[in-house]
């Protein structure tokens, strides 16, 4: 085996693999554990990138456990791009597949929430809809209108209390999570994404609007599963956080 990049890369990712031949210390002696400097750079920098990208997962697991999981994850899903803001997209599935973590069933969804927050952080900027475009409409026109969301908006649905768990691990004085399904809407008013707990039916309403259904049809969809769903509080969040970018009246649609 010569020191081509293939064997070199393999040796970097697998600590027990024999060193490629032809590496020296500069004076003709074998390089020995000098390669470990590079192995350590690879593992520790990518482990740190994963911990930075998933602070709540890291807190829930503990830093040492997260380091061990990051090492396993690196070999299973090495980065495919030098843009490390995209590193970790497979972590939810990876965590879900680890039998030793099966007692933490909510962990993959916490990872999904943290991925969604990161995606929101880096999403494109977009000018917000003037709220008067909504408030000036007659109830009939409003019902028949469609809305577009800002690129930074994200929706995370879970059968676990992910919003409460996230809050409990990021804020002082947050209440203890209670077992219940929670859906989360992420908005980014300027630069910092914020997760909001959605009322029952809210996620269906958001999902229907993002598919291009009118506000009236979206409300029907939401109230099919949650008859008492009222969109007012969610719409207020969307307006306040600049999460709406355009409104289209029925007769402007083809």
């Amino acid at each position: 085996m010569t020191a081509g990049t293939g064997s070199f890369a393999h040796a970097l990712l697998h600590p027990n693999v024999t060193l490629p031949e032809g590496l020296t210390d500069g004076n003709g002696q074998p390089a020995g554990r000098r390669l470990n400097v590079l192995r350590n750079n690879v593992a520790s920098s990518l482990g740190e990138a994963l911990r930075n990208g998933f602070p709540v997962v890291t807190k829930l697991l503990g830093t040492e456990n997260m380091k061990a999981i990051a090492a396993l994850y690196l070999r299973a899903y090495p980065p495919r791009s030098p843009v490390l803001s995209a590193y970790g997209t497979d972590l939810p599935e990876f965590l879900a597949g680890l039998s030793q973590l099966s007692h933490l069933g909510y962990l993959p969804d916490i990872a999904r929430l943290e991925l969604a927050l990161r995606a929101s952080y880096h999403a494109a900027d977009a000018p917000a809809l003037d709220p008067s475009r909504l408030t000036d409409l007659s109830p009939q026109d409003l019902t028949e209108s469609t809305l577009s969301f800002a690129p930074s908006l994200r929706l995370v649905r879970s059968r676990w209390p992910v919003h409460a768990i996230w809050l409990r691990n990021t804020q002082h004085d947050a209440p203890k999570p209670v077992a219940e399904p929670q859906d989360v809407l992420i908005t980014r008013r300027e630069f910092d994404p914020v997760p909001h707990l959605l009322p029952r039916g809210g996620a269906d309403w958001i999902a229907a609007i993002s598919k291009g259904q009118s506000l009236g049809d979206a409300l029907d969809v939401a109230q099919t599963t949650a008859p008492d769903f009222d969109p007012a509080s969610t719409l207020a969040i969307l307006l306040r956080d600049n999460a709406l970018t355009s409104l289209t009246l029925k007769d402007q649609r083809l």
Partner: peptide
Amino acid sequence: SHGDTYLNDLL
């Protein structure tokens, strides 16, 4: 990078 794996170090 080797193949489509990015190693995040200057090798």
